[in-house]
Design a protein around this nucleic acid. Structure first.
Lengths: 157, 157
DNA sequence: GTCAGTGCAAACTTTTTGCAACTAC
DNA sequence: GTAGTTGCAAAAAGTTTGCACTGAC
């Protein structure tokens, strides 16, 4: 897997006349070792603190831009910071975002995926899409019910 | 319409013990006079420069938070700044975002809407959702084709 | 050897926060 | 009168930019 995406990236860099620097491959490797979402800050500490590979944030932003263009990474905007995730050979999935605790859960739904991809749009060439469902995760939902119940009990007293 | 949302907002402020300040109603009015998306900066200039109603950005952010909580405004995250739109009595719609020029087009699709809302999720209480389709608008798509064609012609020469 | 790419720090943008003044209640 | 709101300015957070240095080609 990591080997395959390295090859794809190399091809992309060649075609676009970009240089094959060790930083770029190190960043690609690290990203493809992450499951789920990450932001630039978590990627930075993963590389610098854990893998002891010194890179600057500027280079992270620069390289992520290339990886998005090479269709090896996708960017998401929920919450305050940009979130990214690897996307080569990954199943299409959607996102449930808890509006209370911020937790993001991925889920798959064949029917949804098919319908979205089948939807023929006039005057628009679709490249990719994001479906974000906002609501309450089970934990927060239960917590809220408990609080409501307690309030009610107090009132009855 | 504006009268109705004012009443809803008044009710919301009462229930939550917030004060009914002229700033809050002026902001609500301005937002409900805007068609489509806006960000805090455009709202600010609309109010201060055009309507001559002096408000601070801090108050805009504060009030928008209340309006979102009152389900009178929704927040979108595409591009660099948060985008907002009025949502009372509006038809559900989805967003096409051109990755080249940034243009955002709203479109409706009954089948999509129904399927998303019918999708029963385990352990999740849905409140609202956003579907963003990324791709090329007709203008940019045509422009790219033209550029490609020119390149090809040059090569053939 | 050349110039794209890097690291660093400064700049910039958007949003949040602290505090004195104000005003809705 | 009191406490919630406001405006302002400063701070914070995330991202971009300028520039000297480095290293891929």
């Amino acid at each position: 897997m990591k080997e395959t995406v390295r090859q794809i990236f190399t091809e992309y860099l060649n075609v676009h006349g970009h240089r094959k620097t060790p930083e770029r491959y190190a960043i690609l490797d690290t990203i493809y070792s992450i499951d789920g979402h990450f932001n630039v800050d978590t990627l930075y500490s993963l590389m610098v603190e854990q893998e002891k590979f010194r890179v600057s944030r500027a280079t992270l932003y620069n390289t992520i831009t290339l990886l998005i263009d090479a269709h090896l990474v996708v960017k998401h905007l929920f919450g305050s910071t940009s979130q990214y995730e690897k996307c080569y050979n990954r199943d299409t999935h959607h996102h449930q975002i808890c509006t209370q605790c911020g937790q993001v859960i991925e889920f798959q739904d064949e029917a949804l995926q098919q319908l979205i991809e089948q939807t023929r749009m006039s005057r628009f060439v679709l490249s990719h899409y994001s479906l974000y469902l906002y609501g309450l995760c089970s934990k927060c939902s239960r917590a809220n019910k408990r609080i409501l119940k307690n309030l009610k009990n107090k009132k009855e007293k």
